[in-house]
């Protein structure tokens, strides 16, 4: 078991499998905001879904309206369980998660790609600013 420190942006806890990418997401144009499926064929997560996953990505980019996509995912049940930003949490993601009560952290003291891959089970405790990986 390994414990990673992080910074809380939006509180909450989540346990589940990771969906990880090093590419940013434009939430307005790259994702189906009902099902959570990535629709951009050039994105490395194409056809994968964020639904019931802990999404690890650098940050959101592009349209300011992307914030509503997080809320739409939440209302329709396509939302990720939690989000970890590996670059720097941006305003679109922070505001979108704040209105959707999706736990959100950033500033990991750890290089995620070394130990986390798609499907890795983790426990994210945003309130206590820690992430636990069980498999190690």
């Amino acid at each position: 078991m390994i414990e990673i420190k992080c910074r809380k942006i939006v509180g909450g806890k989540a346990k589940g499998q990771v969906l990880i990418t090093t590419q940013p997401l434009n939430m307005l144009s790259m994702i189906d905001n009902v099902s959570g499926v990535i629709t951009d064929e050039k994105h490395e997560l194409f056809k994968k879904t964020v639904k019931n996953k802990i999404l690890i990505f650098p940050n959101s980019v592009g349209s300011s309206v992307g914030a509503y996509a997080f809320y739409s995912l939440k209302v329709n049940g396509g939302n990720p369980l939690a989000i970890i930003c590996t670059h720097k949490c941006d305003t679109i993601t922070a505001s979108g998660c704040a209105i959707s009560d999706i736990p959100l952290v950033d500033n990991l003291n750890f290089k995620t790609e070394l130990m986390i891959e798609n499907g890795t089970e983790i426990f994210l405790d945003a309130d206590n600013e820690k992430i636990v990986i069980n498999k190690v």
Binding site: S64, V65, T91, A94, I99
Partner: peptide, 10 residues
């Protein structure tokens, strides 16, 4: 800042 729809509303 480059605000989001929701942050600018707030």
């Amino acid at each position: 800042n480059k605000e989001s729809a929701i942050s600018a509303l707030a």
